[in-house]
């Protein structure tokens, strides 16, 4: 079932030298699956996520032939209704949890506050659901963590709290923008497992935005490779070695490997692209 369908998405910013397109005619659909969007800085991958969430700040401009989420046209949606969608139906996890959590409110209270949009829950219900959410992101003693302030937890734990805050509302679509790049490798796996679990058990659609080609390739059902605001290639799960486009191939070649024996790494020749 299609959750999100995007056709010919464009994001434009004005500059001294006229308008600059950061996303240039992107089209894709997302079902209840893990879609990876990879690209280097400036490829427009983050802007794509923000455009879907309706978070491109002026003077940026978003246009699309089609931008539908759960059958609703996002292009003409008034800001008030959009706000009601964000959180309960679609949510976003960012790179660094430290900037997304309120430093002076206890973690438990922040998650319960996120539930306030549901309105008709009793305080006891809210607390139960908050603890469930912390449990769902594999926090062993949710009671204790709920009492902590954001600065008292590690980066990995903070990211899990962020995800718990998103999950508690059971959104249909989650956009994760570099959710693991601020984390250690050992914690990365756990965070990805949690996201995976949410997709499988709750039937959530996930857009994973990252610069890490290998991680996305290992972990997503489908990958879109972006370069200069366009999708240059779409690949299936684990099919990284079948990449055809010179950009993707160049990227793969320029990554050092564990059994590296090359004296120099091949450098991407941008003039050929």
């Amino acid at each position: 079932m299609t959750l999100l369908s995007v056709e010919n998405l464009r994001v434009t910013f004005p500059s001294d030298h006229g308008p600059v397109e950061v996303v240039r005619g992107l089209s894709f659909t997302l079902g209840r699956e893990r879609l990876g969007i990879v690209g280097e800085s400036g490829s427009g991958k983050s802007m794509t996520g923000r455009a879907v969430m309706g978070l491109v700040a002026p003077p940026g401009r978003v246009t699309a032939d089609r931008l539908e989420f759960e059958g609703r046209d996002l292009r003409s949606l008034p800001e008030r209704e959009f706000r009601a969608l964000r959180g309960p139906r679609m949510s976003m996890v960012l790179q660094d949890p430290r900037y997304s959590l309120n430093p002076v409110i206890r973690i438990g209270a922040q998650i319960e506050e996120a539930l306030a949009v549901h309105g008709n829950l009793t305080a006891k219900d809210r607390r139960t659901r908050m603890l469930d959410a912390l449990n769902a992101v594999r926090i062993d003693d949710p009671e204790r963590v709920a009492r902590l302030y954001p600065h008292e937890v590690s980066g990995g734990m903070g990211q899990r709290v962020m995800i718990a805050m998103m999950v508690v509302l059971e959104p249909a679509l989650m956009i994760a923008d570099e959710p693991t790049s601020a984390l250690d490798v050992s914690v990365r796996g756990q965070v990805l497992d949690i996201l995976d679990d949410l997709v499988k058990r709750r039937g959530m659609g996930l857009m994973l935005i990252s610069h890490d080609l290998n991680m996305v390739a290992r972990w997503c059902d489908r990958i879109l490779v972006m370069y200069r605001g366009e999708v240059v290639e779409e690949l299936g799960a684990g099919a990284l070695h079948q990449a055809q486009h010179p950009y993707t191939r160049g990227l793969i070649a320029s990554l050092p490997r564990l059994d590296e024996t090359r004296d120099r790494l091949p450098v991407l020749d941008r003039s050929l692209l």
């Binding site: 280097e40 080609l213 320029s254 990554l255 050092p256 120099r264 450098v267 991407l268």
Partner: peptide
């Protein structure tokens, strides 16, 4: 750094 740039810097250092 981006991976393609990482390759350039690693080559340079070497």
């Amino acid at each position: 750094l981006d991976v393609s740039v990482q390759a350039e810097i690693l080559n340079l250092l070497k």
